[in-house]
Design a protein around this nucleic acid. Sequence first.
DNA 1: TCATGATCTTTTGTCGACAAACCTAGAGAA
DNA 2: TTCTCTAGGTTTGTCGACAAAAGATCATGA
Lengths: 237, 237
Amino acid sequence: MATASSCEEQEPVTIADRVFNQLREAILGGKMAPGQKISEPELASSYGVSRGSLREAIARLESCNLVERKPNVGARVITLSIEELMEIYHIREALEGMAARLAADNMESEEISELRKIVETQRNEISGGNYAYFLKEVDLDFHFRIIQGSRNRRLIRLLCKDLYDLVRFYRASFSASSPRPEEAYQEHSAIVAAMERGDGEMAELLMRHHIRASRENARRSFEAMQDEPVTGQTARQ
Amino acid sequence: MATASSCEEQEPVTIADRVFNQLREAILGGKMAPGQKISEPELASSYGVSRGSLREAIARLESCNLVERKPNVGARVITLSIEELMEIYHIREALEGMAARLAADNMESEEISELRKIVETQRNEISGGNYAYFLKEVDLDFHFRIIQGSRNRRLIRLLCKDLYDLVRFYRASFSASSPRPEEAYQEHSAIVAAMERGDGEMAELLMRHHIRASRENARRSFEAMQDEPVTGQTARQ
DNA sequence: TCATGATCTTTTGTCGACAAACCTAGAGAA
DNA sequence: TTCTCTAGGTTTGTCGACAAAAGATCATGA
């Protein structure tokens, strides 16, 4: 089955495209530390491309909010504080709530059935004691399908291309996961139930509640990591 | 008084900055038609800069969603259909609703007093029969201040820098204004009242209602323009 | 010892030139 | 007439080089 996780990532056609994808994966995969300087000559020779192409790739990374650039100074990988992560969660709450409302109106009934199947898969994985990587993939699949179901192309781009990248970046840079599978399953199930009834308003409320809970969970796990910095890479530059 | 309408536009420091600002103003001011091809050699010589700098400016316009680029083909000014404008309004509804909720919690009481003053200014202008340019400025000021009051920097950037530009672009390209001053005043006043009570949830609901009404107004005025294309530049390429 | 300033190196911003891809116009065949 | 294919011109993608700005280093003086 085609996993919907990688939300329509088009294959590179130009050199700048390729370098952009590679750099993006390097940043999201944690291979470049937050705040790290991006040296144009160094990276250009490392990727074997000219500085011009690299600069275009950097410009695109900047438009994804993955790097910050200062004139005449250069570009750095962003640093996400916990406050900024909270900001992102607030935006996600508003936008994914709207997406759930629109999806309840616009998704075909068979698409909603597939959503139900995803949630059941999630339940089986949990009862099987599987808390691993696959579970996170299923979670992403659930959210992405609802976002796609909104049929609002700009909303889809905003959420999948920009905001989810940032959350992924935060997870990579702080190596903070701490999912809460049982609660998430319950909430997902309730959201799908509302959509099955065609109740967009309730779907929105439940989705917002779900993301709010996820936000509080992230905040708590951050504070726990602060108190006990045993292996915590508190990247505080 | 410093008008908050121009949401912190930093002055250009590099050539690409300057060209970006000029092109942006040209597009938003209606001097470049929707869908118009952006020829790099032509514009570069017209602005007296090299193609490299111009390409960087275009890349930044693309990140604002004001131009679309296809590899090996080139860039065009975007064309906003009415459906896409409706998409933008849905996003604004979600985000500005959230902004109003956060602003109710985070704005100082004196800031809220200034909001009240703005709404009163609006009422005076309306009762004075002044439906002109200034009224739209006041409206923008109202919305921008609430957005700023959310204290959520990413939300501020998203709304002021990206989405409002697109609405402004749509107004310029379709020359569709048709405000509804009385209703807008009532709704603004109710929003401020909720914020004065510190009722963030109600502020969010009222803001969403306000933007929903604005969306329906835009849709109606579009349909009216469709039926009676006397001077309507139905830019349907 | 510390602050201050000058000099030098590195990095970024900008430019012009070349190669590849695309679009267009015209000739030829069905 | 209409379709197809080719040739030409134009535009974009890419590259290396130069100038200006920022940062680093070291010397000087209080």
